[in-house]
């Protein structure tokens, strides 16, 4: 049961030109698995989801959902797939109630019990005017619309945006509950922590390519701990390094080491440290965010440029250009003087 494949993406490519799009994506989502999809804005998360939903036709490669081609059999696939779109825009209807009723009709649902239980859980007032709903309310309405048919596979495109922290908790509870029912969930997000809580596996996508697929359970290795230790002087630091602890990271500048140690050896470590002058010691939690950051930094060819950095470089370039022009002007004036 666990190894049955619910969503299969093979060599999926959609090239929008200028480096945008998705390129040669390959991954599987197993039945009953919660699969996370993380990446910066514009990295290709939504494009991948649109392919799974059969809204876009692949340039090459293919997507299969429970063995059916996502593009050709799109209407059939929808009979076991629920979807929460990333962009929230509702049809031109007056209230949330009317919208959900209409949606139920389209889905062929007669019993609204499950939908009502979702509404209660999310504390949603469906009688509100669709156009005047806040972002969070719209998101909740979209979640109810996506979940109410109780489909086997759920595709969620950044489902927690706009939700307040409490609601996010509730939503994550719902996800876990669905997971316990054996549903396959494919969700994209920018929040590592919520993926960490819910997902079995998380894929990192950058510039349209999958960089890594992490197994969340194995990241959080329960048999080992990681500690960061900083010494007050160089002597102690050098001495400690000679001991046979596994050093994960070494920062000479600060007399700082990070070590990985089996749970059984913790007492040994503290006994050793009794004799050293420490500035501090802290446990480093190994999490998804760190894992991916490590991967990104270790892969030198991949350079993450944040928008702030981009702005900076633009400004720098502008300044450079200006100075260059000034220099040229000066040179010209010099020549003229001569």
């Amino acid at each position: 049961m666990k190894n049955e494949i619910a969503i299969k993406v093979e060599h999926l490519t959609k090239d929008y030109g200028k480096g945008r799009g998705i390129f040669d994506l390959t991954f599987d989502v197993h039945k009953g698995e919660v699969f996370g999809f993380v990446g910066t804005n514009g990295s290709g998360k939504t494009t991948t989801i649109r392919h799974i939903m059969g809204f876009l036709k692949p340039d090459s490669g293919d997507v299969q959902v429970q063995g059916f081609d996502a593009w050709k059999d799109a209407p059939h696939i929808k009979s076991f797939v629920g979807y929460v779109p990333g962009e929230i825009a509702f049809p031109d209807l007056s209230t949330g109630t009317i919208f959900l009723k209409n949606q139920a009709e389209l889905l062929g649902i007669k019993n609204m019990d499950y939908a009502n239980s979702l509404i209660d859980k999310l504390q949603l007032d469906t009688s509100a005017n669709l156009k005047r709903m806040s972002k969070g309310m719209k998101q909740k309405t979209a979640i109810v619309a996506g979940f109410m048919a109780d489909k086997d596979i759920l595709i969620l495109d950044e489902p927690t945006t706009g939700l307040d922290p409490l609601m996010r908790e509730t939503f994550l509870d719902i996800i876990l509950q669905e997971k316990s029912k054996g549903k396959t969930i494919f969700m994209s997000s920018q929040m590592f922590d919520e993926l960490e809580i819910t997902c079995d596996r998380v894929a990192l996508i950058l510039d349209g390519k999958i960089i890594d697929i992490a197994d969340v359970a194995s990241l959080q290795d329960p048999t080992h701990r990681i500690y960061k230790i900083e010494f007050t002087n160089q002597n102690d630091y050098e001495k400690f390094k000679k001991l046979k602890f596994k050093i994960v990271r070494d920062q000479q500048k600060y007399f700082q080491v990070t070590i990985k140690i089996a749970n059984s050896s913790i007492n040994h470590l503290f006994n050793v440290l009794k004799n050293y002058q420490l500035k501090f010691i802290s446990e480093v939690k190994q999490n998804l965010e760190k894992h991916f950051k490590d991967i990104l930094t270790s892969q030198r060819h991949v350079k993450i440029v944040t928008s702030e950095e981009l702005d900076k470089t633009r400004k720098q370039r502008k300044i450079e250009r200006k100075t260059l022009k000034k220099q040229q002007k000066l040179q010209k004036e010099d020549k003229n003087d001569k």
Binding site: M53, F55, A74, Q103
Partner: peptide, 13 residues
């Protein structure tokens, strides 16, 4: 606007 997603995420051709 994207609202077509709600119709096309149901088994409607």
């Amino acid at each position: 606007s994207g609202s077509m997603a709600y119709v096309l995420s149901t088994p409607t051709k």
